[in-house]
């Protein structure tokens, strides 16, 4: 299970509407609205669903952008569940 913390940047005046939409989705917990522009959200889902999850958020009317702030994992075996291209890449030193 991945736990993802992120901010949703919304169009002015749309914060409540977006919050209600996200509340309706089981994977998301909202923690409040900042200055009518940003929502603090935590998502909980199996790692392989992460990309699709954020796309769904972006697809919500009124969402301008999603800024991911933190990501942790719990109770799952990464190598088995997550495709290779999403795994961490070693930093190049050149």
């Amino acid at each position: 299970m991945a736990i993802l913390g992120f901010l949703t940047h919304v169009l002015a005046g749309q914060a409540r509407v977006v919050e209600d939409t996200l509340k309706g989705m089981p994977e998301f917990t909202t923690y409040g609205i900042h200055k009518d522009s940003y929502l603090v959200v935590v998502a909980e889902a199996p790692s392989e669903q992460l990309e699709g999850l954020l796309d769904r958020v972006r697809g919500v009317q009124g969402v301008l952008a999603v800024y991911v702030t933190s990501l942790t994992r719990e109770d799952e075996d990464l190598e088995k569940t997550v495709p290779a291209h999403t795994q961490p890449v070693r930093n190049k030193t050149s």
Binding site: H9, L11, A12, S37, L64, A65, V66, Y67
Partner: peptide, 13 residues
Amino acid sequence: QPDGKGAIPFNAK
């Protein structure tokens, strides 16, 4: 920059 990766945080207003 609207993808949030810019030097200035995105803001419509």
